[in-house]
Amino acid sequence: MFHVSSIVAGANRMIDVIALTKVYQDGSMGRFVAVDRVHFHVAAGEIFGLLGANGAGKTTLLRILATMLRPTSGTVRVGGYDVEDSSSEVRRRIGFVSNNTAIYDRMTAEEMLAFFGKLNGLDGDRLRDRTESLMETLRMNEFRKCPGAKLSTGMKQKVSIARALIHDPPVLIFDEATLGLDVMVARNLLQVIRQLRDAGKCLIFSTHIMSEVEKLCDRVAIMHRGRILDCGTLSDLGSRHGHRDVEELFFSLVTNHDRSVLSDSVLQGAG
């Protein structure tokens, strides 16, 4: 049934997020709405940026896409597969790169790739070919036999990306992946992301750095307190809200939102 809907919606649509809400139930904090009725789509060959301050709900949203968290309500499909009903199928189709590089300290780059490749069902020649080509493109050959603990942050990030790409997934999720990287490495990373887009991948990229969005993203969603305030290409957003600059745009959207929420609650209190 999900195949049908994805065909109807367009063959190149890779991510569908429909009315997604995520509520954390915490004994100490009580109930907390991390993602609030979010709705967007991402197509193949597109870089989709999620722009938001810390705590806006970006990581929660991306973790739901990666099937690590379950939606409280709403529907999320990746590659046509529902994240709740067919989580394994979804996981086969994604590569996830997080802000902490998540490298095993006591494994070499080579071993990491072999492990995740085998978990994804690759082996023998296919695994070897794939490993070699990633080592080549990401220029990892000189440290391929180094244990993870001895790598620099930039090297770690490369290993992390190679790990996410080993099974050649159609969807790639970058959760604040440039966090803590120096300018050179960050530039390289953005370059890699562009190349992946050109290769027809669907990329979703979260950040709180405005300039990255400007340079990289085809479409942007501005996220604040769990809500997506607006979504579209940068020029669309600029003309809609009258700001050419991303930073200006972001602040005007956020402050307008907070003001309206405040007046709503005042009105409700008065009523």
């Binding site: 990666a66 099937t67 690590m68 394994s88 996981r91 086969r92 994604i94 996830f96 997080s98 998540a102 995740f116 978990l119 994804n120 069902g121 992390s160 790990r163």
Partner: peptide, 8 residues
């Protein structure tokens, strides 16, 4: 996290 979003 990386293990949890692998197909395992």
């Amino acid at each position: 996290e990386t293990l949890l979003c692998s197909p395992a």
